[in-house]
Design a protein around this nucleic acid. Structure first.
Lengths: 217, 217
DNA sequence: TCACGCGTTGCAGTGTATGAAAATCTGGAG
DNA sequence: CTCCAGATTTTCATACACTGCAACGCGTGA
C-alpha cells in the first residue's frame, strides 16, 4: 500500500521535512515557540531559510502539521465501513482506531503537546486545521449516508425543505469535538487513562445527548 | 444597562475600532482578505498603520474579532440562570438569545461570512478563537454545576474512572459546535430559515444523541 | 488657562513570506 | 564515463507584518 519504491529524491525530501518538523518542535519546546525563528530551524537542519518555505507554507505549520495524512485515513475508513454500520459508529470507530495508533510516534506528540500547552496561538491554529478536516469528513459522511438510502428515491438531491445536509456536518463536527475534548482532557491529566478510553467516554456522553451533570437525572 | 457615561475619548476609541473593523471587512469582501494590507485599511479610515496595531494584535484580528464581548455575555447568562434550569438548557438558552440578537448587525455579519467563505485561513483562525472562548465557558459551567451539588459527590459518570471535569468541557465544546455548524449551515443557505431555528434544530439533534441520518425529518 | 494623561504618529529594526534566476543534485541515456 | 533533463536548493531582491521608542497633540480635570 505505502510500499511504492521510494526514489532517493523522495526519501531525501521526506527526511528533510521530518527533520525540519522535529527541529521546530524541539526548539519550541525548549525556548517557546514564539522565540523560534525560521532561520534557527533552518540552521539546525542545515538548509537555507528559503528551503523551509518550500516545505511549509508558514512558520507555524512546522509546529502544527505533524501528520498530514491522518484525516485522509479517517475518511477512507468511514467510506469503507460496511453498510450495516451506522454513520455514527463508522465515524467513532475510525477515529478510535486512529487515536489508538497515535501512541507510535509518542515522542513527537509529547513535544507537540508541550508546545501547544505553552502557546495558545498555535493551539488555536491546530484546532482550526482540524475544523478544515471536518468539512471534508462531512462530505465523506454525506456520500455515505446518501449511498445508504439510494434504494428508494433516486433523485436524492436536496429538496428536504429544512435540513438537507445539516446532519453530516453536525456529525463530523461532533466527532471532531469529541476528539478535541478527549485530547485536551487526556493531556491535562497526563495519561491517567488511555486516550482511546477517554474518547469512548466522550462519545458515550454525546450519544446519550449530554443528559446532565453527574448529579441526579 | 451598559450605559455608563462614555467619555469622549472612549467614544472616539470605539468609533475608530469599529471603523477599522468595518473597513477591513469591506475591503476583504471586495478584494479578498489576503490582498488587503494594513496600510490600505488604515488609509480607508484615516489613521496611521501604527495606530492599527494599537487596536488589533494582528492584521487578521480585524477580520475575525467582530464582537469581543459576546462570549462574556454568554458566560454571564449561564451563571445567572436559575438553579432549577439544567446546565444544558442554560447554555443553549444563552446562546439562542445571543444568536437572536445577532440579526441587529446583520450587514456586518454578512460581510464577515463572505470573507470567511473566501479564505479558509481566517475561518480556521475564527474557529480557534471560538475554542478559546469555549475553555472559559467550560470554566463557567464547571462553577455552575459545582455550585449545584456542593459537597455531595454522587455516582453518575463518576464511575468512568477519572472524569472530574470532562463534562463541562464537553458541554461547552458541544455547544460551540452547535453554534458553528448552525452558522455555517445558515450562511450556506442564505437565510432560508432563521438562525435561531437552525440552532434549535442542531441542539435537538445533539440532545437526541446523533441517532441516525434524518430519513424524513 | 495650564498641566497631565493618554492616544497617535513617524521611524528604525526584526522577522515572515514570495518570486526569479543561478547553482546544485538526481536519475537516467548515449 | 559523459552528458542531459528535470527537480531541488540556494542566493538575491522585495513586500509586508509587527514592535519598541521617542516626539507630538488632543481630551480631561484642577
Amino acid at each position: 500500500m505505502t510500499d511504492a519504491p521510494l526514489s532517493l529524491r523522495e526519501r531525501k525530501k521526506r527526511a528533510t521535512r521530518a527533520a525540519l518538523s522535529e527541529a521546530a518542535l524541539r526548539l519550541a519546546a525548549e525556548h517557546g515557540a514564539e522565540h523560534v525563528t525560521v532561520e534557527a530551524i533552518s540552521d539546525a537542519v542545515g538548509v537555507s531559510p528559503r528551503t523551509f518555505f518550500n516545505y511549509f507554507d508558514s512558520r507555524d505549520d512546522a509546529f502544527t502539521m505533524i501528520d498530514a495524512e491522518s484525516a485522509q485515513r479517517v475518511r477512507d475508513a468511514v467510506m469503507a465501513a460496511p453498510p450495516a454500520v451506522s454513520a455514527l459508529d463508522a465515524v467513532t470507530g475510525a477515529l478510535a482506531d486512529e487515536l489508538a495508533q497515535l501512541g507510535a510516534r509518542q515522542d513527537v506528540w509529547a513535544l507537540h503537546a508541550e508546545v501547544l500547552r505553552r502557546s495558545p496561538d498555535l493551539l488555536a491554529r491546530t484546532m482550526g486545521a482540524h475544523m478544515a478536516d471536518e468539512l471534508e469528513l462531512a462530505a465523506a459522511i454525506a456520500r455515505r449516508v446518501g449511498a445508504r438510502r439510494d434504494g428508494a428515491a433516486r433523485d436524492g438531491a436536496a429538496r428536504d425543505g429544512a435540513s438537507p445536509d445539516l446532519y453530516p456536518h453536525l456529525l463530523a463536527a461532533a466527532a471532531g469535538t469529541a476528539v478535541r475534548v478527549s485530547v485536551e482532557h487526556w493531556s491535562r491529566h497526563a495519561g491517567e487513562e488511555p486516550l482511546p478510553a477517554v474518547f469512548r467516554g466522550a462519545c458515550a456522553h454525546l450519544a446519550a445527548g449530554l443528559p446532565d451533570p453527574p448529579t441526579g437525572a
